[in-house]
Computed example of a mutant assay.
Amino acid sequence: MAMSSHSYRALGRHGFHRIHYTEWGDPANPNVLICVHGFTRTSRDFDFLAAALEKDYRVLCPDVVGRGKSDWLNDKTEYGYPLYINDLAMLLARIDAERIDWVGTSMGGLIGMFLASYPETPIHKLLINDVGPRIPAAGLKRVADIVGRVITFDSIEHMDRTLRIFAAVFGNLTDAQWRHMIIHNARQLPDGRYTANYDPGIADNLKTMDLQDIDLWSVWDTIRCPTLVLRGANSDVLEHADAIAMTERGPKAQLIELPGMGHAPALMADDQIALVRDWLLAD
């Protein structure tokens, strides 16, 4: 089946905003998978994974507000996890699924972690890609320093060459996969130049925070669903010791570390897709 695009209105403190999502597979399939991207990424990062799983699942991949084709907020202070969680809870209500599986990269993993921690959660299986209950201040600072700046490129080719160097931590990807990532995470400006496809205001709250380690272990300890944690072996967002602790408390997750990668594995390569698929579909 081909990918289709949809949207819905979600409600924040200052009014409604529209959330875009892509959908793959049979809309009548009761087996539902939701895939949520990282802080500066978009739903289209999951195209390869969704295409591989559409025979097994109805797959939905949202653009978190401020990213991709979803609306940007006028009040930048509203960007944050309370709104992201509420927006995705509205998606769960929209599809009315009794249970879902969840794949979340970085920010998407944290949203899934929060939703999985609530009583009567519909999340049946939770796969968290390179994030955990403790987020080091150094990783937060790196994100804050980069995200709030509008970096422009003369052409898609210029953007491609530059980001292949910057995003080498995502792992070994084919030329077609790199190109896919660039095209779907680029936005053309009125002057013809290109920049990343997100609202720079998503970083405003980070800039005003006293950046210290974020501790969410109390949330992690309430999760009870089967959980898999993927970690790039060179990650500065999910440290090895924290990943080990995630296997010892809360849902006592299974851990797989992926060599030669940092934050965060792209989940586009065939071996990574097979790893995700095998775990999701195992009894």
Rank of each mutant, 00 (worst) to 15 (best):
Met3Ser: 11
Ser7Arg: 12
Ile19Asn: 06
Trp24Phe: 10
Gly25Leu: 00
Asn29Leu: 08
Asn31Tyr: 05
Leu33Lys: 03
Cys35Ser: 07
Val36Arg: 10
Arg58Cys: 04
Val59Ser: 07
Asp63Cys: 09
Arg67His: 07
Arg67Thr: 04
Asn86Ser: 15
Ile95Asn: 03
Ile95Phe: 05
Asp101Gln: 11
Gly108Pro: 12
Phe114Asn: 09
Pro119Thr: 10
Glu120His: 14
Thr121Gly: 03
Pro122Asn: 01
Ile128Tyr: 03
Gly132Leu: 01
Pro136Met: 07
Leu140Asn: 00
Val147Asn: 00
Val150His: 11
Ile151Gln: 03
Thr152Lys: 14
Ser155Ala: 05
Ile156Gln: 09
Asn172Pro: 12
Leu173Pro: 05
Asp175Glu: 13
Gln177Cys: 01
Ala186Glu: 06
Thr195Ser: 09
Asn197Gly: 05
Leu211Ile: 14
Gln212Ile: 07
Asp213His: 15
Ile214Met: 14
Leu216Phe: 13
Trp217Tyr: 14
Thr222Met: 09
Cys225Lys: 04
Cys225Met: 13
Leu228Gln: 10
Asn234Gln: 14
Asn234Thr: 13
Glu239Pro: 08
Asp242Glu: 10
Ala245Asp: 14
Ala245His: 08
Met246Asn: 06
Ala253Tyr: 10
Gln254Arg: 15
Ile256Trp: 00
Ile256Asp: 00
Pro265Asp: 03
Ala266Thr: 07
Leu267Val: 13
Ala269Asp: 08
Asp270Ala: 13
Leu280Pro: 06
Leu281Arg: 15
